[in-house]
């Protein structure tokens, strides 16, 4: 178990700002101890990738950030996830709805709501009680442009979101998450249900988005982690084995487990 190496932080050009920090996080599905003493920083306007073999707890960790585990009985968190650069608050003790309003999520399978494209995008605003058509229109267009979907759908905003292709649906879900201007967007294997071209589109989009928003992404594809992320956390059996900048993780990993995994020897 290696603490984040200070060296990684120094090699970066611009100063890094911690937007969130996981401290001694343990998570239990009932009696199943799924996350063990996780410590890691989340840097602002960077992409952080979570990698590791199946069942190691990547999804579990990701879903702690927006308190998705609260939806089901029997789940228990211990420890802290501090959110905010200046006056950090432990989001595990905040109102889950308040947390989810600041931290968006894009799921593995595109999940547009059974509503028009327009209504899908403004859903988060409607949930917050915003009714002003001018604001809705403006946010809707900006989010679709940011998600590189505007040109494809601008003439069919009234059509159902489900009428789009899989890759378009996933960008619709990204636009929906962007619309509420979250601090962090969580991606859980966002391209695993998509074809290679749609995958490249989403990856390019993530690279562009990191200038506006902090991103945490779970991926099984190590090439993808290299392409899109600046930091990588390698997890194994519920523990965080190594956290470092992505280049270091893939070129000179400190731990033997990490070296074995990134070179494809297991997992």
């Amino acid at each position: 178990m290696v603490k984040p190496t200070e060296g990684a932080v120094v090699t970066q050009q611009e100063p890094l700002k911690k937007l969130a920090e996981v401290r001694d996080l343990n998570f239990y599905y009932g009696h199943n101890h799924a996350l063990k003493n996780i410590n890691m920083p989340i840097y602002e306007k960077k992409v952080t990738a979570l990698i590791g073999p199946s069942g190691c707890g990547k999804t579990t960790l990701l879903r702690c950030f927006n308190r998705m585990h609260d939806l089901y009985p029997g789940n228990r968190y211990e420890g802290q996830i501090l959110l905010g650069a200046d006056q950090p608050r432990n989001l595990l003790e905040m109102d889950p709805i308040e947390v989810r309003m600041q931290i968006g999520m894009v799921f593995q399978k595109p999940n547009p709501f059974p509503k028009s494209i327009y209504e899908n995008i403004v859903y988060g605003l409607r949930v917050r009680g915003i009714k002003d058509k001018a604001i809705l229109d403006e946010v809707m267009e900006r989010s679709l442009r940011n998600a590189a979907l505007w040109d494809e759908v601008k003439d069919r905003l009234k059509e159902p979101g489900t009428s789009l292709s899989g890759g378009q649906q996933q960008r619709l879900c990204i636009a929906r998450a962007l619309a509420t201007d979250p601090k962090i967007i969580l991606f859980d294997e966002p391209t695993s249900a998509l074809d290679p071209i749609a995958t490249v589109n989403i990856e390019n989009l993530i690279v562009e988005l990191k200038d506006q928003v902090t991103i945490l992404i779970v991926t099984h594809n190590m090439q993808q982690a290299i392409r899109v992320s600046q930091f990588t956390a390698f997890m194994y059996l519920g523990e965080l084995v190594e956290f470092n900048d992505t280049m270091s993780i893939f070129t000179k990993p400190v731990e033997q487990k990490t070296a074995d995994y990134v070179s494809g020897r297991f997992g």
């Binding site: 927006n66 998705m68 939806l71 709805i97 308040e98 989810r100 309003m101 968006g104 999520m105 799921f107 399978k109 999940n111 709501f113 059974p114 509503k115 859903y123 988060g124 409607r126 949930v127 917050r128 879900c173 929906r176 998450a177 509420t180």
Partner: peptide, 26 residues
Amino acid sequence: PLELREGSYAMGATRIQTALSVLIPA
């Protein structure tokens, strides 16, 4: 499907908002 339900909660919706504007249309 569970994804729709979770998608709505992930946007910060309450239970009643999720029920009325996502689950019933679905």
